[in-house]
Design a protein around this nucleic acid. Structure first.
Length: 170
DNA sequence: CGGTTTTGACCTGCGC
DNA sequence: GCGCAGGTCAAAACCG
């Protein structure tokens, strides 16, 4: 945890360079990361600074065509990505994850890992990929919203990561 | 022993 | 329609 540093850089959307609808709603991401207390005014200000500095939003909402029904109506999918500078691929974010796949990605020498939340009925997924450009950077992409509390005990670790984040901003 | 990881096969969307 | 690339399944191995 001493080498974990959350940077919250811009979402690396490689193919789609300009996504029109970037959501910068803090309440959304606090649902994805309940351990982040975004109601803390000071913390939120710091984050806003980072995002502005990076020139884009912290997350994206992928528009997915709902599967052939609804006449091609577009549904929003909660999908957030952020980058961390870490030696380890997996950050303890308070949830329990089960790995269900690993794939090698084109244009990247590191494989991408696929995880699913082990909580019953929770369909939240995430994928973790290390950048070939800078192998210290790990891109974590969350998909979905957790509808259950986190594991309190392990979540304390994440608080320390949070502390790193605040120190980094300061 | 039960949950998790591993790993190749299978599925699917998309571009040509 | 075909092939590639990405995403998922599932069985066996692994580990506490």
């Amino acid at each position: 945890m001493e080498h974990n540093q959350i940077l919250f850089l811009a979402l690396p959307k490689s193919s789609d360079s300009a996504s029109p609808n970037l959501s910068s709603n803090p309440s959304n991401i606090s649902q994805v990361f309940p351990r982040f207390h975004f109601d803390s005014a000071g913390l939120m200000k710091n984050e806003a600074k980072i995002y502005q500095h990076c020139g884009t939003s912290y997350g994206s909402v992928d528009k997915m065509k709902s599967s052939k029904k609804e006449g091609g109506k577009e549904t929003k999918k909660h999908k957030y990505a952020f980058q961390t500078r870490s030696q380890v691929d997996i950050l303890d974010d308070g949830y329990r994850w089960r790995k269900y796949g690993q794939k090698t990605v084109k244009n990247s020498k590191f494989p991408r890992s696929y995880y699913r939340c082990t909580h019953q009925g929770c369909i939240v997924k995430k994928q973790v990929q290390r950048l070939s450009k800078d192998e210290e950077i790990v891109v974590t992409t969350y998909e979905g919203i957790h509808s259950h509390p986190t594991d309190e005990t392990s979540a304390e670790n994440f608080d320390q990561i949070l502390r790193h984040l605040q120190t980094y901003n300061a």
